[in-house]
């Protein structure tokens, strides 16, 4: 799966500009799905199986990024965030625009070392000297430019949030030979700006059960108050986050499947964050949902790290889950 993860994380597609990643995913899944469609918001929806319970699996294909809102008279591009970008992770970062233009994020960090203010302290240097010879304009978007790195068990990349979920869905679709369910593999758009793709795709699919596959922040690093989520100890079953409460019956079912097949898992109660699960839960007459998360260090920074075993175990769990009936 590593070449796939490399390909996915090295594709540039911030929220609202998912064309490139959608094409990559389409190419990977087209021989494995019974039906594929793209909805009005650009969600890629692949169905496998028919007639049984409708199960929607959602992984968002967009990533956080930036958008240019001004090019100053000396050719420096000023920018706003697309999604939750932390200014302190930006200085010295490289970005790449959709037209291929690279740039480096500069800042007056010597003048103001602690707090960086959007549009004041930071800018993108694209090597231009005036708006005239600038290869980027107002409205152009960019994502972080970082290569995929394989450290063995641990892998690093930009946009592991949530291309690792996308990789899990692709691999699950390929490995799932037979299912009693009608499974919808949904690669959602615009998650990072308010789960917008999931709102419309969930309405369109109207599933009986919804499962969001996303990353969750691992706190097994120095200087953290809590130690709850660890890399390498398996995917997490989320009881709650700021967006939704996982359906207790569904979580119980996941635990049963994981324990029967000896797949490691972690129980998670989060105070912040939210996933596509919230959008699915609120569609139509309501849908039992949960979030299945892959632990990830340094979420929303240009270098996000996950454990490859967790990724494989998430795929294994989903395949086992989808092969059999789900009674909740």
């Amino acid at each position: 799966m590593k070449p796939l993860i490399k390909k996915l994380t090295e594709t540039f597609s911030p929220s609202g500009y998912e064309n490139a990643i959608r094409e990559v995913i389409m190419d990977e899944i087209k021989d494995f799905a019974d039906e594929i469609k793209i909805d009005a918001l650009g969600n890629l929806i692949a169905r496998k199986g028919s007639g049984g319970k409708k199960i929607m699996l959602a992984a968002h294909m967009d990533e956080i990024g930036i958008m240019v809102n001004h090019v100053d008279k000396n050719g420096f591009a000023r920018f706003a965030s697309l999604g939750g970008v932390f200014p302190q992770t930006l200085v010295g970062s490289r970005v790449r625009f959709m037209n291929g233009t690279p740039g480096v994020i500069g800042a007056h960090y010597l003048k103001r070392p602690i707090k960086l203010i959007w549009n004041k302290d930071m800018f993108i240097d694209i090597g231009a000297t005036s708006p005239k010879n600038s290869p980027v304009q107002i409205g152009d978007v960019a994502a972080f430019d970082r290569p995929f790195v394989d450290l063995g068990d641990r892998i690093i990349g930009k946009s592991m949030d949530d291309r690792i979920g996308v990789a899990v869905l692709i691999e699950t679709l390929r490995k799932l030979k037979d299912t009693p369910h009608e499974v919808y593999f949904v690669f959602t758009t615009q998650e990072e700006v308010g789960v917008r793709g999931a709102i419309t795709s969930a309405y369109g699919v109207n599933p009986d059960i919804g499962i969001a596959i996303d990353v969750t922040g691992a706190d097994d690093i120095p200087e953290m108050d809590t130690k709850t989520i660890f890399l390498g100890k398996g995917p997490t079953f989320k009881f709650k986050d700021a967006g939704s409460i996982g359906d207790p019956r569904l979580i119980k079912h996941f635990i049963k499947v994981a324990e029967k097949d000896k797949i490691p898992y972690q129980r998670e109660v989060a105070n912040m964050g939210g996933t596509d699960a919230r959008a699915i839960q609120l569609t139509h007459a309501g849908v039992p949902v949960m979030t299945l998360s892959i632990p990830c260090r340094y979420v929303h920074s240009p270098s996000e790290m996950v454990d490859y075993k967790d990724v494989q175990n998430t795929v294994k769990l989903l395949v086992k889950l989808l092969e059999k009936n789900i009674e909740i």
């Binding site: 939704s244 839960q281 609120l282 569609t283 139509h284 007459a285 309501g286």
Partner: peptide, 10 residues
Amino acid sequence: AQGARTSAFA
């Protein structure tokens, strides 16, 4: 208000 929203829809 997740329950109210979905019950009203139904």
